[in-house]
Design a protein around this nucleic acid. Structure first.
Length: 422
RNA sequence: GUGGGCGUAGCUCAAUCGGUUAGAGCGUCUGGUUGUGGCCCAGAAGGCUGGGGGUUCAAGUCCCCUCGCUCACCCCA
């Protein structure tokens, strides 16, 4: 049998309430802050991702779903949320709107990787980007948005980790300092880290190999190399987070996996930090627009994996209830009654009642069993006896007595029964 | 890309040392009542034992390959 592609998931109805809870909570927090929804294509030109995330990143090197279309263009399934939004901002001239332009999205992300707990080839992210304003207050608002969303979902124990990578003019010096520090220690590094040392030295810092991580702790710190403007920015951000009473911790080893970040980077991680534990993260990317050939546009944003948010909700005991349920079940007792059953069903739905209609003439027993299982509060029976006399039988399913009502008054009577009970 | 564990009904699981027609619970459908639900009882449907090859008189069981799931590494959300 043809099965779903590896690392993808069918989302069945039983998980819909939890997903709805997440998306509605996030949308609510976005709207409270004046963020507007945006959606971009599932496919983008491959260069959009390679030029922004960085050639040396794992994402660009081995995780992209890329293909050639029939015209010969190389396209890639969205592997990351930020670059497409920046592209859309520039391409659609959103710099003509009052700045910053604040946008959010709920979308799927594709990365070719071995699936495991909390990691998929297609996963979903809630994300937000604020473009066109370099102020640290925007960083704070974006972090506040994500933090508030987690809180609204009952997740209150995530640790916010923070760091600053400075600006491009100070990056080479820091990079060189790391090379100078790690090179004599190369014997103590794993082969992966040795490779990174030449390609992308910053990445050595966030190795999870305990021995390497230990060396990383004593490595030169980004904050000692950043310039005065970045320092001022970072100090201001910390002050704002304190004013907003959002607890955070500085992590000198936090560098993030994508190359386009500058100044602020942050991650939310659970207290029992496993290996792929990051629930959400982001940062500032003031030079991303230039990487795709546009004018300078400062920006800051984040992405957070919905599947991981759900894992953390479960861990914190947040549960979602299914709000929609059938109120009335209409049961045709003979095939000749199906047409009128469907007509009554539509009349009821027209008044806003949630109705399920049995599709075949069958025994009352069979229909009522279905009605019970559907959680309906009342059943309406239409059989030969009812049709002869122009009535329907109305049976509350809580044990109250069954009554016959004129077909013409059926809708009103059913409404009355539903309101009496509630 | 690397390593471990696991694949039997829709779901959770049995099946002795390799030995008859692969079973049970839950779920589904039907009946127990010629027109009355939940509980109870009965019956039915539902399996290429993931797929292919091999060993054997005989394979769900042993061997090889393959696919899938899963956990971890790597990395990310």
């Amino acid at each position: 049998m043809i099965q779903r592609p590896r690392g993808t998931a069918d989302r069945l109805p039983d998980v819909a309430p939890a997903w709805r809870l997440v998306s509605e909570a996030f949308q609510r927090q976005c709207e409270l802050r004046g963020f507007s929804p945006i959606s971009t294509p599932t496919i983008e030109r491959t260069e959009l991702f390679t030029r922004t995330t960085g050639d040396a990143t794992d994402l660009a090197q081995k995780e992209m779903y890329s293909f050639q279309d029939r015209g010969g263009d190389s396209l890639t399934l969205r592997s990351e949320g930020t670059a497409p939004v920046v592209r859309a901002y520039v391409q659609n001239g959103l710099h003509n709107l009052p700045q910053p332009v604040k946008l959010y999205y709920i979308t799927s992300i594709f990365r070719y990787d071995r699936p495991q707990a909390g990691r998929y080839r297609e996963h979903h992210q809630i994300g937000a980007e604020a473009l066109g304003d370099a102020s640290p207050a925007v960083d704070a608002e974006v972090i506040d948005l994500l933090w508030s969303t987690y809180r609204a979902l009952g997740i209150s124990d995530l640790r916010l980790e923070l760091n600053s990578l400075g600006d491009p003019d100070t990056r080479p010096a820091y990079r060189q300092a790391l090379v100078d520090y790690f090179t004599p220690l190369a014997d103590h590094l794993d082969s992966e880290s040795r490779d990174r040392l030449t390609i992308n030295p910053l990445r050595v810092l966030d190795s999870k190999n305990p021995a390497v991580a230990d060396l990383g702790e004593r490595a030169p710190r980004s904050l000692d190399f950043i310039g005065e403007p970045a320092r001022t920015h970072f100090d201001a951000l910390q002050g704002l987070l304190q004013a907003l009473e959002i607890p955070f911790a500085i992590n000198h080893r936090l560098v993030r996996g994508l190359d386009y970040y500058n100044r602020t980077v942050f991650e939310f991680v659970p207290p029992d930090a496993g290996s792929q534990s990051t629930v959400g993260g982001g940062g500032r990317y003031d030079y991303l627009a230039e990487l795709i050939g546009a004018d300078h546009v400062p920006g800051v944003g984040f992405g957070s994996g919905i599947e991981r948010v759900l894992l953390n909700m479960e861990r914190c005991g947040t549960s979602a209830v299914d709000s929609q349920s059938i109120e009335v079940y209409v049961a045709p007792l003979a095939d000749g009654a199906v047409a009128d059953a469907m007509r009554l069903t539509r009349q009821l739905r027209h008044t806003g009642i949630t109705v399920e209609c049995g599709f075949r003439g069958a025994s009352p027993r069979s229909h009522l069993r279905r009605a019970s299982r559907s959680q309906a509060r009342a059943a309406v029976l239409i059989g030969a006896r009812e049709m002869e006399r122009g009535v329907v039988s109305l049976k509350p399913l809580d044990g109250a007595a069954q009554i016959e009502v004129p077909r013409a008054d059926a809708v009103n009577c059913i409404q009355a029964v539903l309101t009496d009970e509630s």
